[in-house]
Computed example of a mutant assay.
Amino acid sequence: MSDAIIAETVHIGAERIQAYSARPLGPGTYPGVVVIHHLPGYDEATKEMVRRFAVHGYSALCPNLYWREAPNAAPDDAAAFVRAQGGIPDEQIIRDVTTAAEALRALDTASGRVGVIGHCSGGRQALLVSTAAPVDAAVDCYGAFALEPPPSTSTLRARPIRDRLPDVRCPVLGLFGDDDQFPAPAEVAELAAELDKHGKSFEHHSYEGAGHAFFSVDRPSYRPAAAVDGWRRIFTFFGRHLEA
């Protein structure tokens, strides 16, 4: 497989939502992946993940979820503004990710199958999207507040999505750290039990010695061994559900 890709900022859907796109240049058809950025925003680390998927044979797209609220702000400033406003409403997340999935399926090189992945707040949102959008596989990387609301000290107003779990419509992979507080191991175990109760496919793995944001190469929280194994699991999971 060639590792030649094209990566660029695009605008998608009727609203012309800003998004970062990366896709293979070689001939053939490719599955799609919507990358949901983390709470710190539409930043360089997230764009690098988008390019990584393209190198591995996926057409990847990351919509800027803060585009409306802070259209020209730097990622840190946009994230601070959105955090102060309590976050992005769930229904808006679902609409924007659905728009991104439709854009991927409309590509001439599309295979027709699309997955979604998110880290941090994006992990919760990937799980949320799996209950309401036409995606074929979802990856939740340490998504917090799926079952319990944020602590009272937080400005975030994320609502638990426990009541949506019966509507999960695709296989889900969850990757977590044993040292994380949000979500803590007990919440991960409860999430697994809830999804099992509803007959949903949920593969999950937690890493000893890893906390929140262990995939973030530009942060002290980065744990190379956990991240390397996590990426292996992600590509195996997407390979099984998107490339079949």
Rank of each mutant, 00 (worst) to 15 (best):
A79W: 00
R105E: 11
R113F: 10
G26Y: 05
A70N: 05
V34S: 09
P27M: 08
D77R: 10
D77V: 12
N72K: 12
A79L: 00
L61Y: 02
R23P: 02
T109H: 15
P71K: 08
A78K: 03
V55K: 14
F53N: 03
Y42W: 10
T46C: 10
P24R: 09
L104Y: 11
A70I: 08
G115W: 08
G41I: 03
A54P: 05
Y30N: 03
Y30K: 00
Y66D: 00
E44D: 14
V34E: 08
R68I: 10
R52C: 06
H38W: 13
G28T: 10
I36H: 02
D77K: 10
P63H: 06
G32M: 01
A80S: 14
G41D: 06
M49F: 08
Y30E: 09
Y58R: 01
V97G: 00
L107K: 11
H56P: 00
R68Q: 14
P71R: 11
V97F: 01
R113E: 05
E48D: 14
G57Q: 08
R113T: 13
F81Y: 14
G32Y: 01
A103V: 03
A103Q: 13
I94R: 12
I88A: 08
V34Q: 04
A60V: 08
R105N: 13
W67H: 13
Q92Y: 10
D90C: 06
V82N: 03
D108N: 13
R83G: 00
V50W: 02
T99K: 08
R68E: 14
D76S: 14
R105S: 12
V50I: 09
V82W: 00
H38Q: 15
I88H: 02
D43P: 08
Y42D: 05
G57H: 04
D96M: 11
E91R: 14
Y58Q: 04
D96F: 13
G87N: 09
G115M: 10
D76N: 14
Q92R: 15
T46S: 11
A70K: 07
L61W: 04
K47Y: 10
G57R: 12
L39V: 10
G87Q: 04
H38C: 13
S59E: 05
A73F: 07
V34N: 01
D96E: 15
R95T: 12
D96G: 02
G115Y: 08
I94T: 15
T98K: 13
A106R: 14
H56F: 07
P75L: 07
V35N: 01
E91D: 15
R51P: 05
V116Y: 05
S59D: 03
Q85Y: 04
S111G: 14
T46D: 07
D76W: 02
S111V: 07
